[in-house]
Simulated scan of single mutants.
Amino acid sequence: MKTLLGYLGFVLIVGGASGLVSGWIPGFRLFGLVRYLVPDGHETAGYATLLVLGVLLAIPAARRG
């Protein structure tokens, strides 16, 4: 369970951060998979939410060792 939370947290953190960066830097695309999780027109809030959820999932995984 620890590794699953860690991997999922990592994917959400990297996906959310790359989505935010791609909004500020045109042409930057790193993680195209997570764009299907965010509704059109709400990219900034959606990617920030993914980033926060990733951090919240990664914290318990890191605390368990």
Rank of each mutant, 00 (worst) to 15 (best):
R63T: 12
A48G: 12
W24L: 15
L8A: 11
V38K: 01
G27C: 07
S18W: 04
R29K: 14
E43L: 13
G32H: 12
L20N: 06
L5F: 12
P26E: 06
L30R: 03
G27I: 09
G46Y: 05
V52W: 09
R35F: 11
L53V: 11
G19T: 08
A58F: 12
F10P: 00
L37Y: 14
L20A: 03
L51C: 08
G27H: 09
I13N: 03
L53G: 07
L50H: 03
G41S: 05
L37W: 14
G19H: 09
L50F: 02
L56C: 12
S18R: 03
L50K: 00
G65R: 12
L57G: 06
G32R: 10
L53N: 08
I59H: 07
F31R: 00
A45P: 06
F28P: 01
G54M: 03
A61Y: 08
R35A: 14
S18N: 08
A62R: 15
R63H: 15
V11M: 11
L12T: 00
V52F: 09
K2E: 09
S22H: 12
F10Q: 00
G6L: 14
A17I: 08
F10E: 02
P26F: 01
A17M: 10
A62F: 13
L4W: 07
T3N: 13
F28R: 03
L50W: 00
G41Q: 03
H42M: 14
G46D: 07
I25M: 02
P60M: 05
Y47W: 08
L20E: 05
K2A: 09
L51G: 07
G15I: 01
L20S: 04
L8P: 01
G65Q: 11
V55E: 04
W24M: 15
